[in-house]
Nucleic acid binder design. Structure first.
Lengths: 247, 247
DNA sequence: GATAAAAATTGGCTTTACCACCAGGCGAGA
DNA sequence: TCTCGCCTGGTGGTAAAGCCAATTTTTATC
C-alpha cells in the first residue's frame, strides 16, 4: 500500500529561482534522513511522485537523476527506482571525472592509497570478523588462480584491497578506498602490462592477510606499506620503459 | 551468475539500453579528458549540443544534470553551462547523502579524519609553500577573532583543516578531506553548543601551524593527532551531556 | 500444474511550448 | 557627448502530452 506520506509541501515558496528540481532532492533526502526510506526500498513511480508533490514529471526526473548520479538511488528500467543498498557508491565514478578534470597523477594516487590503506589494514587487523577474513582470503586464492591473466589479477587485486577496507569496520574509510581504487582501476585497466612479477606480489598479499588474521596491526600496517611502495615502484619502472619505448 | 563488474558500465557504448543520456556524459567526459574542455570553459548551448549530437534537448539536459550533480559542471541560469573551475567538489555534498543513507557516526568520522589529516599535516610540513602557510595562518587569526561566535569559529576551524589539506600538495587527499569535513560541518552546524573551550582549541591550532611552518613533519603529525583526539573527546562528553539532559 | 502469451506498470526519450534570468546594444534624456 | 534605463536576443529551467522499451504481473492455454 503506498503511504501517501510525501508531506506535500504546498509550493508556497513560489520558487522563482531554479529550485524546483532541488526541491525534489531535498524531499527525498529528508525521507532518507528520517528513516522513512531505507536502502533497498522502492520509491513511488515518477508519475505518482509528480502528482503527490505537485511538480511536473520532467522536474521529478531531473531531481531523481541527480540522486542517481550521486549514487544514492538506482533506477531500473521497467521496474522502478530504488534506494541504493549495496556497498556505498557502487559505481564509484565520483572521483573519476574529477581525476580527469584535475589531472590526478599516479604518484598522487599511490600516496593517497598509502595514507588510507595502511591505516585501514591496521584497523582490519584489530576488528576483522571471520566473514571479513574469509572474503579477504578468497581474493588471495583468486589471485593465485589468475597469475597468468593480468586483467583478472588486477581485478582481484583491487577487490582484495577493498575487502581489507571493508574489514576496517569503518564505512567511511571503505568508501574512500573504494573511490580511489576505482579511479586507479579505470586508468590502469587498459594499460596493464604483462611483465609483472605477480608471484612476488601475491606472496606479499598472502603475508598481509596472515598479519591481519593473526591480529597484528603493526605487522599489517608494515606489510601494506611495503606492498604499496613496491607496487608504486613497479609501476614507475614500467612507465619509464613505456615512455622510453615511445621515443 | 555475472561476476561483479566494477565501474565498467559501458566502455563499449553499444548499449541500446538506457544509454542516450550516458552517451552525453561520455562525450563531455572525453572532451575533458582530451583537454578540449578546460576548467572555466563554457559549453555550447543545450539546443546547440542537441543539434550536434542528434539528441533531444531533455536528454542533453539529463546528461548535463548528472555532471552537475557530480560537481564537474556548473550551470548558470541565463548565462550558460561551464566546466567547474574552483576547488574540487565545491559543494561537497557527495558524501553527505551517503552519510545519511548509511548512518555514518561521529566516531567513524573522527577516525577517518585521523587517518587522512594526520598524514596530510605531515605532508604539509614537508611541502607547504609560502602561500599555503599564509592561508593557514589567516584562518588561525580568524579563529582568534571568532572566539565568542561558535558558528563562525566552526567555519574557520573547517577552513583551517582544509587549508592544511591543500598544503599537502596532493589534490586527492585535499578532495577527500574536503568531503569528510563537509559531512562533519553539515551535521555539526546546527548542534554546536556553547560550552567549548575554544581558547585551548585555538592554541592547539596555533601550535600545529607552527610545526608546519617550521617544517617538522613529526611534530605536525603529533599535533594533529592530539588535536583531533581532543576534539573527539570533547564532542563525546558534550553528546553525553545532551543525551543525559534529554532523559 | 506448468508454460507461454498478453496486459499493465514503469522508467527512458522525444517534441513542443513557455517562463525567468543574464548580457549587450540601442535610444531617450541629462 | 555621456549616462542611464529599457529592451531584445540568447540561455538555462519548467511544463505538458505522447510514444517506446524493459520488466513485472496477470491471464489464458495446454
Amino acid at each position: 500500500m503506498p503511504k501517501a506520506k510525501f508531506t506535500q509541501s504546498e509550493k508556497t515558496t513560489t520558487a522563482q529561482n531554479g529550485a524546483t528540481a532541488e526541491h525534489v532532492v531535498e524531499q527525498i533526502r529528508s525521507l532518507i534522513a528520517n528513516g522513512e526510506l531505507r536502502p533497498g526500498d522502492r520509491l513511488p513511480a515518477e508519475r505518482e511522485l509528480a502528482k503527490q508533490l505537485g511538480i511536473s514529471r520532467p522536474s521529478i526526473r531531473a531531481g531523481l537523476r541527480m540522486l542517481v548520479a550521486r549514487g544514492v538511488l538506482r533506477a531500473r528500467h521497467g521496474s522502478g527506482t530504488y534506494v541504493a543498498d549495496g556497498p556505498p557508491s557502487l559505481d564509484s565514478d565520483q572521483l573519476s571525472l574529477l581525476a580527469e578534470l584535475h589531472g590526478f597523477t599516479f604518484d598522487q594516487m599511490y600516496e593517497a592509497r598509502q595514507v588510507l590503506e595502511v591505516q585501514a589494514a591496521g584497523l582490519a587487523a584489530e576488528r576483522a570478523t571471520p566473514e571479513h577474513l574469509a572474503a579477504i582470503s578468497e581474493e588471495v586464492a583468486e589471485m593465485y588462480a589468475a597469475l597468468e591473466d593480468p586483467q583478472q589479477y588486477l581485478i582481484h587485486d583491487i577487490k582484495f584491497h577493498r575487502a581489507i577496507a571493508t574489514a576496517s569496520a569503518n564505512p567511511i574509510l571503505a568508501t574512500l578506498v573504494e573511490m580511489v581504487s576505482a579511479v586507479m582501476y579505470d586508468q590502469r585497466r587498459d594499460t596493464i602490462g604483462r611483465a609483472h612479477d605477480f608471484k612476488e606480489s601475491v606472496e606479499m598479499h598472502q603475508r598481509l592477510y596472515r598479519a591481519i588474521r593473526s591480529r597484528k596491526p603493526d605487522e599489517a600496517r608494515a606489510a601494506m606499506h611495503e606492498h604499496l611502495a613496491l607496487a608504486h615502484k613497479a609501476y614507475r619502472t614500467e612507465e619509464g620503459k613505456l615512455s622510453k619505448k615511445k621515443k
